[in-house]
Design a protein around this nucleic acid. Sequence first.
DNA 1: ACCTGAACACCGTTCAAGT
DNA 2: ACCTGAACACCGTTCAAGT
Lengths: 208, 208
Amino acid sequence: MTDTKNQSQSYHHGNLTRVLIDTALEIISEQGTKDLSLRKIAKRAGVSHAAPYRHFKDKNAILGAVARQGFDMMLRQTEKRIAKSKGNELDHFAISGLSYINFAVNYPAHYRVMFGTRAENSYFSDELKPESIPVFKLLRDIIMVCQEKGLLKTGDPQEMALAAWSIVHGFAMLRIDHHLPDQGMDEKKLRELQRSVVLTLYSGLRPE
Amino acid sequence: MTDTKNQSQSYHHGNLTRVLIDTALEIISEQGTKDLSLRKIAKRAGVSHAAPYRHFKDKNAILGAVARQGFDMMLRQTEKRIAKSKGNELDHFAISGLSYINFAVNYPAHYRVMFGTRAENSYFSDELKPESIPVFKLLRDIIMVCQEKGLLKTGDPQEMALAAWSIVHGFAMLRIDHHLPDQGMDEKKLRELQRSVVLTLYSGLRPE
DNA sequence: ACCTGAACACCGTTCAAGT
DNA sequence: ACCTGAACACCGTTCAAGT
């Protein structure tokens, strides 16, 4: 009963920025990226359709904020899973890939904004996809450690990280866009499939 | 000089359907999927903005036709490359993957429509992604032949085809959307990278 | 049968005006 | 400083009307 005062007035005092991001995510989850509009966001946030322009340059800037938040969440989540693991570095490598796919499956709205086709995503800076760099670096660092311990084969770690990323990104995209031939597979079967696909292909990176 | 008669009148006699598809592709290539509009297509085709509705149910139906054409082209192109190859079945397997990525790189406009997020792509039928089935089957058949000859390890060919598909789809998407850390890589370097990534990961499917 | 033009309900973005 | 409301140039889709 004490914190019901900040209802319809609260984000008139500074937190509209956050509310707009959260509302955008809600709408994307419910109606898809395609049907997201600035005017819908504004209406649901209880504000005029021009108000968001005080907080974001344009519609893409809101999507950019959503993407940034997504990359943050994905990184933290992956780091946490690795920290909790009792396995060796090779296990960490596998966990990073599976965790990546899990994030995409659990937060498809975020993921779609993060990796919407670049042609449509001018909300990434004109330079190279800077948002995805930290998670890519994490992957590459794990690979380098594995190489030092002889758990993965030698070779350019950047290239191997890219290979690993291709698999998980590809699988995640096919999965959340329902392009998989998942004829009547239930959730458990899909998770097994996902595990099997990643581990099989990762084995191509093991020492010969 | 003989066939200049069919200029602005010709598609009033039945081929507007084709002109609309081709025009859509032109605009996507020039301005991106996001900036494609029915009204732009109609205007460039020299027809009123309501005319396309005689030929397609709605805007998505046009994109569906583009996607279908893309899957056709991809399949034929891959089959042709395999037919020209002098290698064994394992080579065919590698060719199918590299050919897949090449198609995406050479026809990014097609590819983006083919694999735009499903939430946005109601132009795929409500059933399972039927357009992509033939190319998926080709991949699976090659895998089965390789298994019979002991060139690939045993296991569910459907699952292995999915694994192979994940890689090439993931790499293709990252590549055409410029999410790759391709700092100053030229075309030749990118093709080497692509080849290396695919072959490395495919080696995870080889007999143990 | 095929196309047009007006109409409707939406967009993103800008800008003067209000508090 | 932050928000509103009207305005502008666009959308996709429908439908009566023209040929």
